[in-house]
């Protein structure tokens, strides 16, 4: 019997689900291996007898917490896709601002109707088996993880910095162009797509396990920086990093 799979979304932009839909032909192949019982973006009928749940988006209301707990109860395996669900993502920016200020700015005097809580990743509420990171997810990596899970293998997620991928693409390092880049402390796996398109890495895949011991320390030192300083430089601009 084909494993039953459900997709659920929490607070996010749905870009990650769109990445899944955009897989096209490969999506059809994956669909051949599974039975999708719940996917709001693509099917209207829903069932709750899934074994594998694929989650995107962050937790941002009390209601979300109840929902994710119910999903966890049903699912044997839980995969989170995207920075929102795996790291909290851009939603965490608001954690740096007083809640009252934000609610007022967005919803005016009706603010008290909204029960928002500080945004947090899924794993902050329930155990998660696998994470596919990135904002948005990298399609190739999603396919790798899902096929590994379906065939009972352990997916391999890199724990080296984006710089390694960046150099193999022979990009000119952005530090040499006077910019700052989070590549030295960010987990690779995206093919260093941002620096390859001339823009800095802003850490959407999260940090490597031990950012202070990054193999790119020398690179940072050359530009008068420590891992802590680059991380700090980004924390205020964007909110991917746990802080």
């Amino acid at each position: 019997m084909k494993p039953k799979v459900a997709f659920f979304d929490f607070t996010g932009c749905e870009g990650c689900q769109l990445q899944v839909i955009s897989l096209g032909d490969e999506l059809l192949q994956v669909l051949g291996l599974i039975e999708v019982v719940n996917f709001r973006e693509a099917i209207s009928d829903k069932r709750d007898d899934y074994e594998l749940a694929i989650i995107d988006g962050a937790i941002s209301t009390e209601e979300d917490i109840k929902r994710i707990k119910a999903i966890r109860k049903q699912a044997k395996v839980l995969i989170t896709i995207g920075a929102c669900s795996s790291l909290g993502g851009v939603n965490c920016i608001r954690n740096f601002h007083p809640k009252e200020f934000l609610l007022k700015a967005v919803y005016g005097e009706q603010a008290q109707h909204f029960d928002t809580i500080p945004a947090r990743p899924i794993w902050a509420e329930v155990p998660v088996e696998y994470q596919v990171r990135g904002c948005p997810i990298n399609q190739g990596e999603f396919l790798k993880v899902i096929t590994a899970v379906l065939t009972g293998r352990q997916p391999v997620i890199p724990n080296y910095p984006v710089c390694m991928e960046c150099r193999s693409k022979e990009n000119v390092c952005l530090f040499d162009k006077g910019m700052t880049c989070l590549g030295p402390v960010t987990r690779a796996g995206c093919g260093a797509i941002c620096p390859s398109y001339g823009n800095f890495c802003w850490g959407c895949r999260g940090l490597v396990d031990d950012p202070n011991e990054t193999s790119e320390k020398e690179l940072l030192k050359k530009h008068g920086l420590t891992p802590e300083q680059v991380i700090k430089a980004f924390r205020f601009g964007c909110g991917f990093l746990e802080g």
Partner: peptide, 17 residues
């Protein structure tokens, strides 16, 4: 843009690539 979901290279006054 480098990517459709969240373009990378479009910045004020031009494109980084």
């Amino acid at each position: 843009g480098g990517r459709h979901v969240h373009p990378i290279s479009a910045v004020p006054n031009g494109f980084t690539k």
